[in-house]
Simulated assay, not measured.
Amino acid sequence: MVYFDNAATSHLTPKVIERMTQVMSQVFGNPSSLHQDGRKANQLLRQCRQELAQALAVKDNQLIFTSGGTESNNLAIKGYALANQDKGKHLITTSVEHHSVLHTMSYLETCGFEVTYLEPINQTISAQQVKEALRPDTILVSIMYANNETGDVYPIEEIGTLLTEHQAVFHVDAIQVIGKLSVHPQELHIDLLSASAHKFHGPKGCGFLYHNTLKLTPLLHGGQQENNRRASTENLIGIAGMTTALLDCLAKEKENLAQIYGLKASFLKQLDQLGVNYYLNQGANSLPYVLSLGFPETNNALLLTQLDLAGFSLSAGSACTTGNIEPSHVLASYYGKTSPRLKEVIRISFSEYNTLAEVLALAQILKKVIKH
């Protein structure tokens, strides 16, 4: 199989597998235990936290290790809202967020919070929209860095700067960006930032939340791990793999970006040369790692099935709606619920481990499948 669904998950690299195997065999103690094995595990945990903090240019006590992006988003939004509702009960997000944000917001609405959902204009969310939605009782704004279905990048720094003049804290779901671009939350005026290891060649079931030393209500209760912010024994094997993966990706950031831009350009050029009729489903500012394409009068469910049979793994959008190709809430927000684009668009998400031969082969098979 040729894999082009890296926005859903990415494979572990040999370097990450080697590091995790080493930890599994040599550092099996509980980081909270006081004996030598526990102290050894705790030392590795502190080392990983420090290395990740350095990569983000933050303090190590500002990172909370989690089980992944969904938990990080839940802890950021639910944790802050419940702990600070005395300041207000109004929240702002967008209609194109990942479901781990949208469903968390829906839950908080049942708890008496009021949520404003910003609709995209020209496939983006502007700082002006946020400014107009702010109220004296707004306590949190949650906007993703880059959309997981289309790759569109939203003006995070501009929104963060705007919020420095307001009590509302700024949460950013950076799950599609961490590991691809260097992100320094404090420079961008981000107060809460979510990341997930398996999006940048780390293991599934591991992630982190950056917090600007904020008061959060824990989601899990039990032990005193993570400075009393998240009970449960830390997933040291996963954390070690995540740290290795992120540092490795950031060390090759410019090289990887150049490669991905090249793959994307070569793929689109090949489609043009083959005479394939398609349209780009992205705004002016988008990540090269995610390519959202539509093929007029071509059903995406049938197209993806044929591509799968031909040995190519792609998707129509978020992997969290697995089992069905339902109309995308992102595309519905962009074009309306009755737009034919909702059933025509597929997502191709690249990795630096994809090759030129693979993208050219994908263009060829697309022409063949669409023609028939």
Rank of each mutant, 00 (worst) to 15 (best):
V172Q: 00
L219D: 11
K215S: 15
C206W: 10
I175K: 08
A231H: 15
A251C: 09
V177S: 02
V183N: 03
G179S: 08
E234K: 04
G238N: 12
H171T: 06
P218A: 07
M242Q: 05
F200E: 07
H171F: 12
K215F: 15
V172M: 04
L219C: 11
E226K: 09
D248V: 12
F208T: 09
A231T: 07
Q225Y: 13
G205F: 03
C206F: 13
H221Y: 15
L246Y: 14
L247E: 10
Y210V: 05
F200G: 03
H211G: 02
S196C: 08
C206E: 14
F200L: 03
L209S: 00
G202S: 00
R229L: 12
G205C: 06
I190G: 07
S196R: 01
L250G: 05
P203I: 10
G179P: 10
H201V: 01
Q225V: 11
A174G: 10
H189Q: 03
N235C: 00
H211V: 02
N227L: 15
T233G: 15
H201E: 11
N235H: 05
D191Q: 13
V183T: 02
L181A: 13
S196P: 05
V172E: 03
L236D: 04
L236F: 03
G202T: 01
L188I: 05
Q186F: 02
K215L: 13
G223W: 02
H184K: 08
L219Y: 07
P218M: 04
Q176G: 13
L247V: 07
R229Y: 10
H201T: 06
K180E: 04
I178F: 11
A251Q: 14
T233I: 10
H221E: 11
I237L: 06
H211N: 09
F170L: 08
Q186T: 06
H198K: 15
G241R: 03
V183A: 05
I178V: 09
N228M: 14
E234T: 03
K204F: 11
